Simulated assay, not measured.
Amino acid sequence: MNDRDRKPRFARGGGKGRDRGPPRRGRESGDGPAILYGWHSVTAALANPERKIRKLWLTENAARRLADDKIDTRIEPTIVPPREIDDRLGPDAVHQGLLAEADPLESPDLDSLTQDGIVLVLDQITDPHNVGAILRSAAAFNVKAIVTTARHSPEATGVLAKSASGALELVPIITVTNLARALDELNDLGFLTVGLDSEGSETLAAVPLRQPLALVLGAEGSGLRRLTRDTCSVVARLDMPGAIKSLNVSNAAVLALYIGASQLGLMR
Rank of each mutant, 00 (worst) to 15 (best):
N187D: 12
A138P: 03
A102V: 04
D68Y: 11
E106P: 09
V159S: 12
R12I: 14
N130R: 01
D3F: 11
R54Q: 13
I118V: 15
P172N: 07
A243N: 02
N178G: 04
A62T: 06
K7L: 15
L110S: 02
H129V: 14
V171M: 01
R25D: 12
F10V: 06
L36V: 03
Q211Y: 02
L209H: 10
G14H: 09
G117L: 02
G195I: 00
V94M: 14
R268P: 10
A34H: 09
D72N: 15
D103C: 02
A206F: 06
L183V: 07
L266F: 03
D239H: 10
R225G: 13
V119S: 03
Q211E: 15
R4V: 13
P172Y: 08
V131S: 10
T114L: 07
M1D: 14
R24H: 13
N142D: 15
I35H: 01
A253Y: 03
G32Q: 15
N61A: 14
P108F: 03
T231N: 02
N187C: 14
A253Q: 02
L58V: 04
P154H: 14
L183I: 15
A180R: 14
A67H: 12
A102R: 05
L36I: 02
A145M: 05
T78W: 00
G117S: 07
R225F: 05
A93V: 05
L217K: 03
K162E: 13
E169K: 00
P33N: 12
V254C: 08
G218M: 06
V171T: 07
L110T: 04
G26L: 11
I244W: 02
P82C: 04
Q263D: 05
V42K: 08
D239G: 01
P8E: 11
D239T: 13
A214D: 12
R237G: 00
D103K: 06
Q115T: 08
V207Y: 05
R54F: 10
T193E: 07
L266A: 03
P91G: 05
R226Q: 13
D103L: 09
L160Q: 10
D69R: 15
P81N: 06
A62M: 07
P108N: 01
V216S: 08
D86I: 03
G218Y: 07
E199Q: 13
T126K: 12
R237I: 00
M240I: 14
L247E: 07
T157A: 08
R51N: 00
R229T: 07
S29Y: 11
E84D: 12
R74A: 04
P208N: 11
S165V: 08
I71M: 09
R12F: 02
N142C: 12
A256E: 09
D92P: 00
E76P: 03
P104R: 01
R54A: 11
D68G: 07
N2A: 10
P23L: 12
A100W: 01
V194M: 04
A236T: 02
D86H: 12
T231F: 06
A139M: 05
A219E: 09
A44H: 06
E199N: 12
I53D: 00
V131I: 10
S153L: 04
G30L: 15
I173A: 06
A133F: 00
D92R: 14
D87M: 11
G242K: 02
R74E: 04
H95L: 05
K16C: 11
